[in-house]
Design a protein around this nucleic acid. Structure first.
Length: 487
RNA sequence: CGCGGGAUGGAGCAGUAGCAGCUCGCCGGGCUCAUAAUCCGGAGGUCGGGGGUGCAAAUCCCCCUCCCGCAACCA
């Protein structure tokens, strides 16, 4: 049983600033926002955190290509992300940037703690090691095996040199047993269970120590104990979860970091969050996060989204067509949370019209219209016949898909009830029993609609508010269309 | 034997042991409060293939076929 008085820190990854926000980042961010809104509605203390990861070679490259210096470039990118998230109606408490002075200070502190740390086996957590890899002179960076095409750099068509450089390593291996135990005992919870299994699988495959610094990357945080090297971007990025709540500036970060912590992300960075990050935290003497929530990937019409295929769906296209609420709904109802999903604009359109315009929107219309016409807008709301407790439970278990299913079952139930009772027939009759029956039914229906509005509010804040406002009015009037049918 | 996910009526998907469900589409009917919305009924599936365990399997075990992600520092 969770203690709902414990403060809750909800995070998204900080998004890498070299590219524009896409549907995947929108999905993660919306999911985190839904959870945050849900808990805020329950009056729980919540701090939600998102932001941009602005260091690293790729950002430097992107800036160079744009012909501006890195700082100017990331300033611009941060704005792009902020605007995009505002456009999705996500209300974060803080948007952190890794180039902010606060963060830099926090990371330096973090790195110093790391340098001082002893592993459980009483060895220094940080040691000097040799990093080897294929270095491309043209790119001025190490390429991964995967990036090589027939042994050559795809960009410069030259064979890279096999170079070695000395940098600092983190002795991850000494922390693995403790993390593995925490995961298998569900002290460190990973949702959904498939992601948990995947993580445990990593341990079986073996996880190696990793280097925390680079010699040849200038655009980064210099190591406080060796200024010739900069921090490996992950070691710069992950601590944002701490610095975002004030780490490095006294103890106030503990207000949040000693509470419940939930990290949202896509599965591609699960390993970093479920293994590297807990280990780093153990090393610097901080508690591990409580919960890691990883979702899957989207394909579009069966294929991986890619610019070259031209099947990329941008968040703003969806918003233009289906509105903010509509987009939030369509994304979270696209597939069970945690699984991979397939999207298409055609299906979005079908679902938007079926579920939102014809379903929720129409129910709100017919209900409020009958209240206005038959009861002159006056009704005292009773208890909803179908409370939506299970929808809330699903949200708390990060199962947004099923939460929505639950709510939509109730919408169907309400539509069926209206047709069964036929309030318009009761309204024609003037006798007392019919009038009483009518009044009772409509007050229940109104209560049910209010219940639905409350339940959808975390997902669709605007629609939820509008329905609530309409039902709380002195005299209830027919609500204007919530979702205009799209074509 | 690298790791993992998937294959369910025309389309898209739920469903991890107990008479196979949902949405869209299609056919027929009802209603008129409502955003040409809504409600009822119907057609349509041997749940990728084969074998096994169970009183009972889409659901557990084994084998096979086909798809898709990820694979040591890619952030």
């Amino acid at each position: 049983m969770r203690n709902f008085r414990v403060p809750l820190l909800i995070t998204t990854p900080i998004y890498y600033a070299n590219a524009a926000p896409h549907l995947g980042s929108a999905y993660t961010t919306i999911a985190a926002d839904v959870l945050a809104r849900h808990w805020r509605n329950q009056k729980r203390r919540v701090f939600s955190l998102t932001g941009t990861d602005e260091h690293g070679q790729k950002v430097a490259d992107a800036a160079k290509q744009a012909g501006v210096d890195p700082q100017a470039f990331v300033d611009q990118q941060a704005k792009v992300f902020k605007t995009a998230f505002q456009g999705l109606n996500v209300g974060f408490d803080r948007f952190i940037r890794t180039t902010e002075p606060d963060h830099l200070k926090g990371v330096e502190f973090f790195l110093n703690q790391l340098k001082k740390a002893q592993t459980p086996k009483k060895r220094p957590a940080i040691y000097k090691g040799i990093y080897q890899g294929w270095y491309c002179q043209g790119c001025e960076k190490f390429l991964t095996e995967k990036e090589l095409v027939e042994g050559k750099c795809p960009l410069h068509q030259t064979a890279p040199q096999y170079l070695t450089e000395e940098n600092y390593f983190f002795r991850l291996s000494d922390y693995l047993p403790q993390i593995r135990k925490a995961i298998s005992q569900n002290k460190l919870k990973i949702f959904p269970s498939t992601a948990r299994q995947e993580t445990l699988g990593y341990f079986k495959q073996g996880v190696q120590d990793f280097s925390i610094s680079r010699q040849k990357v200038d655009w980064g945080v210099p190591l406080p104990f060796d200024k010739r090297q900069t921090a490996y971007v992950w070691v710069d990025a992950l601590p944002n979860y701490l610095t975002g709540v004030g780490y490095g500036q006294g103890r106030r970060y503990r207000n949040w970091w000693r509470g419940e912590v939930v990290h949202f992300m896509a599965r591609d960075i699960l390993k970093f969050h479920a293994i590297y990050w807990p280990a780093l935290l153990l090393a610097v003497g901080e508690p591990m996060p409580y919960t890691i929530v990883a979702h899957g990937f989207f394909t579009v019409e069966g294929k991986k989204m890619s610019k070259s295929l031209g099947n990329v769906i941008l968040p703003k296209e969806a918003i233009a067509k289906f509105g903010v609420d509509g987009t939030r709904y369509l994304l979270l109802s696209a597939c069970p949370f945690g699984q991979d999903g397939d999207l298409s604009m055609v299906r979005f359109l079908e679902k938007y019209n079926a579920d939102l315009a014809n379903g929720l929107g129409n129910l709100a219309s017919r209900t409020t219209n009958m209240l206005e016409r038959y009861l002159v807008g006056r009704v005292s709301l009773g208890q909803p016949p179908k409370p939506l407790l299970r929808a809330n439970q699903h949200i708390e278990n990060f199962d947004f898909f099923r939460a929505l299913q639950e709510i939509w079952k109730t919408i169907t139930w309400a539509n069926q009830a209206i047709d069964k009772v036929q309030p318009w027939e009761l309204a024609k009759k003037q006798d007392k029993t019919s009038q009483a029956k009518l009044k009772k039914f409509l007050s229940e229906l109104a209560a049910q609609l209010l219940e639905i509005a409350k339940a959808i509010k975390p997902f669709m804040p605007e629609a939820g508010k509008r329905i609530e406002a309409s039902l709380h009015a002195e005299s209830i009037k027919k609500i204007p269309p919530l979702f205009i049918r799209a074509v």
